[in-house]
Amino acid sequence: MSATLDLTARQRSAATEPAPAAPAGRRSPTFRRALRIASIALFIAAWQLAVHYRLSLGVVTFANMPSPANTIPALWDLLHSPKLPMHLAASLTRVLVGFCAAAVVGVGLGLAIGRYRALEDILLPPLEMLRPIPAVAWIPLAILMFPSSELSMMFITFIGALFPILLNTIHGVEAVDPRLVATARGLGTGTLSLYTEVVLPGAAPSIFTGLSIGMGTAWFCLVTAEMIAGQYGIGYFTWESYTLQNYADIVVGMALIGVLGMGSSLLVKRVGNALTPWYRLRGARQ
């Protein structure tokens, strides 16, 4: 009884104590957000000045580059174009289908390879041989393998997203504490429960890191994918602008791919943070 009263008193005392102050040097979220926006503005200003003064660094020259002042009207025209929704819908479909397929295959193979050495010896060597092949080199085989250009383009984005997801999943599984696995087996945990209750939660932070990187690389491969064929897509718009020498539109297409890739990768990261509340980085970054 006295122990219960003592525990209750300590809980009340903890509830009335003020929350610990943030460590000195930690910046507020508002300040950090403003700092990031300022960095983007500074980059754009430097780009404008480099083009305006025709900066030449010997190997690199900005004399023929479109400036932000020339790009903004091109962006305005695209935003008011009736083709923009079709471009976005086509690219989003290709990236999401390729990414989702890569997530299923990459996480599934990663969980298996990370746990069983025999599968690592059989499956990982050919996968490691395929990993350095650039997406553009897959275009001829993709055209031969798939009956439609749409499936070929989805395959290219799949290839781009697969290997970051696969390797990060393997790393996450291998990093799970062996003592946790041994304890779970000692308590009679079956293979399926071992995966769902021990291996998967332990590897989840690395898996979501791979998913975030994989989403970015899927967008990275979008221009390569949409070089195959098609009439719509942000990558196709960018490539077509190059062939037509609409240089400002090239920058607009690149910027849209960058924004969409950054936003979707950030979304995957936020989902990962929400689903792994037990995972926290150790130490505070200044």
Rank of each mutant, 00 (worst) to 15 (best):
A63R: 09
T30I: 08
L55G: 00
L244E: 01
V259G: 11
A34F: 11
P125S: 01
L124V: 05
L187W: 04
V176E: 13
T157G: 10
P29T: 02
D121S: 13
S264V: 08
A74V: 12
S152G: 14
L79V: 06
P277D: 10
D249G: 05
L222Y: 10
Y279S: 12
G230I: 03
V271D: 08
G261Q: 12
A21L: 09
M227V: 09
L75D: 04
T217K: 15
V173A: 10
L256T: 03
P23S: 03
T217H: 15
S241I: 01
G214A: 07
L42I: 09
A218H: 11
G263H: 02
V51G: 07
L281G: 13
R285A: 14
L162N: 04
A41D: 07
A38W: 04
G25A: 11
L211R: 00
M129W: 05
S212H: 00
T276V: 01
G263W: 11
A14T: 06
A90I: 12
Q11C: 02
S264T: 15
S148P: 07
H52G: 12
A284E: 06
F220I: 11
K83I: 13
I40G: 04
I156K: 10
I156H: 02
A184L: 02
G190E: 07
C100M: 09
A118R: 12
D77F: 00
A102N: 02
I257L: 15
P29Q: 09
I133Q: 11
Y232L: 02
P205R: 01
V176R: 12
L57C: 03
V271H: 05
M65E: 03
I228W: 01
T191P: 09
G235E: 04
R10Y: 00
A63V: 12
E150S: 15
S13H: 04
H87P: 07
T8H: 11
M154Y: 05
Q231F: 10
G272S: 08
A284D: 11
S81D: 12
S206Q: 10
W47G: 11
H52A: 09
V60G: 13
L127W: 07
T183E: 10
R117F: 00
T61D: 15
Y116Q: 02
Y232F: 14
E17V: 10
L200Y: 14
S148N: 10
G160R: 15
R10F: 02
A142D: 12
A175H: 08
I257Y: 13
A218Q: 12
L55H: 05
G106D: 00
C221T: 06
T243W: 04
S67G: 08
L141P: 10
I228R: 00
Y247C: 00
A142M: 03
R12S: 06
A182K: 15
G190F: 12
R280A: 14
Q245H: 08
V59H: 06
T30L: 13
L124A: 10
G190I: 04
D249M: 05
I250N: 06
D6I: 06
I40L: 15
I40K: 02
L281Y: 15
G172P: 01
N64Y: 07
P73L: 09
S39N: 14
A69K: 04
A19Y: 00
A69E: 04
S206P: 00
R32I: 11
